[in-house]
């Protein structure tokens, strides 16, 4: 039982760190701010949450598990809000989409 818990925790750690790596590679490779935001807000959040869950699984006592889960929920609530705020601010200030973008249905709204 204890060994399985340890192995599960190790697996969560590895998967979480791989997602963090994927998010930062996405930050490097994707063409513009808005597509980079996809990588940071999904894979990055996922990576941090998985590593917190790994800590919860490894420790196994109630206080730590509840605090870790509170951290995960908190992170899941705040990550989309902050990326949404940043995207809204950047778009309304005038950072344009990359030239590979195929449509922009928000443009007439801003020009109004």
């Amino acid at each position: 039982m204890n060994e399985i818990v340890t192995l599960v925790s190790a697996a969560f750690l590895l998967i979480g760190s791989l997602f963090a790596l994927v998010a930062s590679v996405g930050l490097l490779r994707l063409p513009d701010l808005y597509t980079r935001m996809h990588a940071a807000s999904k894979a990055g959040t996922m990576g941090a949450c998985l590593m917190l869950i790994a800590l919860a699984v490894h420790s196994g006592d109630v206080g730590t598990v509840s605090r870790a889960l509170a951290g995960v929920v908190f992170f899941l609530l705040t990550a989309p809000v902050s990326s949404h705020l940043l995207a809204k601010a950047a778009y309304s200030v005038g950072y344009r989409l990359h030239k590979s973008s195929v449509r922009d249905e928000m443009a007439p709204e801003v020009e109004k």
Partner: peptide, 21 residues
């Protein structure tokens, strides 16, 4: 997260981003 991982790690990124109402 999985789809982002696949997209980012594919050697040729062919994406058509855009804003939808």
């Amino acid at each position: 997260a999985w789809r982002v991982a696949v997209l980012v790690l594919s050697p040729r990124m062919e994406i058509k981003p855009g804003i939808i109402a």
